[in-house]
């Protein structure tokens, strides 16, 4: 199984951000996306996840294999940590949430309401959700924001474990996750769209 992106152009609100993006990720590999703020890393990840339409080019991967985690963690403040995770486990049809709880050391938080968690704890819960989805392709947008160094380490271990099981990940981050040779780095600055390509008013309605 591979994720292949070829000659992909992405738009955000009819502004052309990136064009000609191409890469391939195979099982057990991670791809780290780099680039300055506002370049289009989030939009690229959302396009691969299917949340934005593909403007040009192709995204090839088996259907229903990718899971996306963005800036927001989708945590319900009146549900407990367990209920939050259990909900996603049932939506994705996977059973157990224990491994996800253990990966981020959240045993003591399990009955706490989502609204009572700190920003870092929320992010840990948001990342733990990835494990209960059971999907092999993870698309992660700045996953380490508001995590402490211990949690960043746990997150690195989680990614490494995921890659060991034949999973893959595309991660927009500026932090070294300690993945070594299994992670390739792609600088997106080279794909920045030329300014003359940047406006097409019809696109917003298509």
């Amino acid at each position: 199984m591979t994720l292949t992106v070829s000659n992909l152009s992405v738009l955000r609100a009819s502004r052309h951000l990136l064009s000609g993006v191409g890469f391939e990720v195979s099982a057990g590999q991670a791809l780290i996306l780099r680039g300055p703020n506002g370049l289009g890393k989030t939009t690229l990840l959302r396009t691969i996840a299917g949340l934005q339409p593909v403007h040009e080019g192709q995204v090839d991967m088996p259907e229903e294999m990718a899971v996306y985690a963005g800036h927001l963690d989708g945590i319900k403040s009146t549900l407990t940590v367990r209920e939050n995770l259990q909900f996603w486990a049932s939506v994705f049809g996977t059973g157990s949430i224990d491994a996800a709880i253990a990966a981020f050391d959240m045993d003591h938080l399990i009955d706490r309401a989502g609204g009572m968690l700190s920003a870092g704890q929320k992010r840990r819960l948001g990342l733990a959700r990835l494990m209960v989805t059971g999907r092999p392709i993870w698309l992660l947008d700045e996953p380490t924001v508001s995590l402490d160094t211990v949690a960043v380490g746990q997150f690195g271990d989680m990614i490494a474990g995921h890659l060991d099981r034949g999973g893959m990940a595309v991660i927009a981050t500026h932090i070294d996750l300690g993945l070594g040779a299994r992670a390739e780095t792609l600088d997106l600055s080279q794909f920045k769209a030329a300014p003359e390509q940047q406006f097409n008013p019809n696109e917003a309605f298509l």
Binding site: R46, A49, G50, E64, A66, G74, W88, F92, G93, R129
Partner: peptide, 8 residues
């Protein structure tokens, strides 16, 4: 966003 990328 997460529901839109879920299997439903």
């Amino acid at each position: 966003d997460l529901l839109a990328t879920a299997p439903l």
